[in-house]
Nucleic acid binder design. Structure first.
Length: 376
RNA sequence: GGAUGGGUAUGCCUAGUGGCGAGGGCAGCGGACUGUAAAUCCGUCACAAAGAAACACCGCAGGUUCGAGUCCUGCCCCAUCCA
């Protein structure tokens, strides 16, 4: 259930109630594709950092360890020892990212496993069954994420298929939730809007899926090569056609600036690999821009990544020390950067929620953006 | 003193036995990454130049050859072994 608490312009402050607890939105979901945040991040770490939702991936968990195993272990929550909400992505993004290893058909997608090359079939029903076995809080519809530069004819056909797939997802999810041995019978299905950068296709699709009365809606297929301006324009065009009383999730996005802009256009949920991947690569976010701790200029820098930051990295360690750890390939270096970045993202969302509540979102956004630009 | 194997560019290691204006790795330096095939990938890494032509001690010095990092001679250095 989605409860809107406050609007500030188009920015929304809300609560999303689930069987695994309430999600305060806008929210950033921390990406743990294979049931783990890469960079040796534990559940305790995430609790400290203020993580509300973890995201895992249907395709990856199906390949390894296998969703049946997760089911036998009592579902993802038990398996990962995480009691708060989990969102599972459907495998739709892998239709895009594993482009060289798959074939798309009406019934679904034939993958070749990136682990051992074995052939895997995944369609809407399979994706729902796997996600039901994983027993996540929120399951995503199985979609095709078309490349941003795909031509119009292809995108049109792809979106129509994605709509047909969504109907199949919905029917299958209802069936699975009705089974007595389903772990999470209250599993929620979010539909996904597609249409690349064709605004009319996007809007048409948004209207169509809005009629299905799903518990939430996502905008997919953005930040895959188009410009920021194109992305913002699509969000602006699509959001008004999605139900006001449902959360909107912008999939895979993005930079802190992307998030600030998207919140301003009515988006509630986000996820992105940036804080974890960039952290592993030594790039850390601050209110004064991004730092690359591999750079020689931090060799003798005894300041924390960010002054006054209470995260586990900044509380005790200097940039110079973390740089050394990174250069020496000590796992702790990556871990500290990832922890800092996740804290930065989650904390920024907290600030965003506060700013909306207090009706000063525009001012907050302007300050945050100019600070980050000034230092970068 | 003798034997054997080596000395390859800005640091280290290494490919190379007649066409080399010398390949690769590490380290260094810089960059990229958006529902994670990513602790990955890319660039740079003698000098000079930003042209389209020029320039560079492959331990050193000679030699053979149209042509030598590569073959020959001498020397220097390193490693191991023998006296």
């Amino acid at each position: 259930m989605y409860r809107l608490l406050k609007k500030d312009g188009r920015a929304k402050r809300a609560e999303f109630h689930t069987v695994h607890g309430i999600i305060q939105t806008p929210v950033f979901m921390n990406v743990g594709t294979a049931a783990a945040i890469k960079g040796a991040v534990s559940t305790e770490d995430l609790e400290q950092i203020g993580t509300q939702v973890q995201l895992s991936n249907t395709y990856h968990l199906h390949v390894r360890p296998g969703d049946q195993i997760v089911r036998k272990m009592g579902g993802l929550h038990k398996f990962m020892s995480w009691s708060r909400p989990i969102l599972t992505d459907s495998g739709g993004f892998q239709v895009f990212s594993l482009a060289g290893l798959r074939k798309i058909k009406e019934e679904g997608v034939y993958f070749q496993s990136h682990i051992d090359g074995r052939h895997i079939f995944m369609g809407p029903e399979e994706s729902m069954q796997i996600q039901s076995n994983l027993a996540s809080t929120i399951a995503m519809a199985f979609d095709e994420c078309a490349p941003s530069k795909a031509e119009r004819g292809y995108v049109q056909a792809s979106v129509e298929r994605t709509t047909r797939w969504l109907l199949r997802c919905k029917a299958e999810m209802e069936r699975l939730n009705g089974l007595s041995d389903t772990i999470n019978q209250k599993q929620l299905l979010f539909g996904i809007n597609q249409g690349a950068v064709y605004e009319d296709i996007r809007v048409e699709h948004a209207k169509k899926i809005a009629e299905l009365d799903l518990p939430g809606y996502a905008i997919g297929g953005l930040a895959v090569g188009e410009t920021h301006e194109e992305m913002y324009q699509i969000i602006e065009a699509v959001v008004p056609h999605l139900p006001m009383e449902k959360p909107v999730y912008l999939m895979g996005v993005g930079t802190p600036a992307n998030i600030l802009e998207a919140v301003d256009r009515g988006v509630d949920f986000f996820d992105c690999v940036y804080p974890s991947r960039n952290g592993r690569h030594g790039h850390v976010y601050t209110n004064h821009g991004k730092l690359n701790l591999f750079n020689a200029k931090y060799e003798l820098d005894d300041r924390p990544i960010e002054e006054e930051c209470p995260c586990p990295a900044c509380r005790r360690y200097s940039r110079a020390y973390i740089r050394h750890l990174l250069k020496a390939k000590e796992m702790l270096g990556m871990r500290l950067c990832v922890l800092h970045n996740l804290y930065f993202y989650n904390h920024m969302m907290e600030e965003i929620r506060e700013a909306i509540e207090e009706g000063r979102y525009q001012e907050y956004k302007r300050q945050k953006l100019s600070g980050m630009e000034a230092g970068a």
